[in-house]
Design a protein around this nucleic acid. Structure first.
Lengths: 137, 137
DNA sequence: CCTGTACATACCTTGACACGTATATGCTCT
DNA sequence: AGAGCATATACGTGTCAAGGTATGTACAGG
């Protein structure tokens, strides 16, 4: 009710590698800031700042324990993410096996000269997923 | 190894609202650049740039059709995302109902001495909502 | 060949945000 | 009260990516 904007930022939140690492850490059990700091080997202010972002976005919640704060996971934002993924789930479950067989055949054969996707990868980002040739027009 | 970097960037890719919009568009069927441009009301160079990012990350692939390029979805990167989410799925399915009841009780009662997450949601910085334009919500 | 169309790319500017360093706040124990 | 630990915040800085504008490239048809 307070934040509708948050739904959008869920994606930005988990775009940060350290934040994802923190979330993964908290899956097993709740942790104090110091424990997170030591396990991930990142400076404490950085941990605190990320935790604040995660907390404000609802990914985690904290409990005070003496001088420590124990952080634990909250399910909701990750479920939102899951919900967003849902729209694609139908798609890939339908297409995956067919596509795989298709590419499998293609890879074995001599590449035809049809071009797909490879028109000009100026930016050399080796995404050697599968050599994609084949099929056009 | 090389794609480790790519796995990371999957999250950055979908952090962009326009890119998510494009992906959602392509769920139904393949589209040309012009069609995407018109439906999302964003300038053509912007669309092309996002499509390039999506293509290099393996989210989409393109087929040449005369002067057009038809873009369609590819399942793999989204499946990686799904796989990452997997580690949390156990968590939330186990904890959700219990947690909900728990918080439910907590909220009703006077907060005895345990304070959960509400310590001081000092929100001095309105978290600077990204002033994006388009992106119909 | 020339024109229009469809898309891609180059260059520049701007604004977020992640980090490091330094400092503030809060709690415990003696 | 004071020392010391655990965590949060303030501030300055560098980096990087998204958007705008302009231009390049490829294809179709008269």
């Amino acid at each position: 009710m307070e934040y509708t904007k948050n739904v959008e930022s869920v994606f930005e939140i988990i775009a940060e590698p350290n934040r994802r690492a923190i979330l993964s850490l908290l899956v097993s059990s709740q942790q104090s800031v110091g424990e997170i700091e030591r396990q991930l080997r990142i400076p404490q202010p950085t941990v605190s700042k990320h935790l604040r972002v995660l907390r404000e976005a609802g990914f985690v919640e904290s409990t005070v324990d003496a001088q420590r704060r124990l952080y634990r996971l909250r399910p909701n934002p990750l479920q939102e993410l899951d919900a967003w993924l849902g729209q694609f789930r139908r798609f890939w479950s339908a297409h995956l096996d067919a596509l795989e067989r298709h590419l499998d055949r293609m890879d074995q054969k001599t590449p035809t000269k049809r071009k797909i996707t490879k028109e000009k990868t100026t930016r050399p980002k080796p995404r050697s997923n599968r050599s994609k040739k084949g099929e056009a027009k």
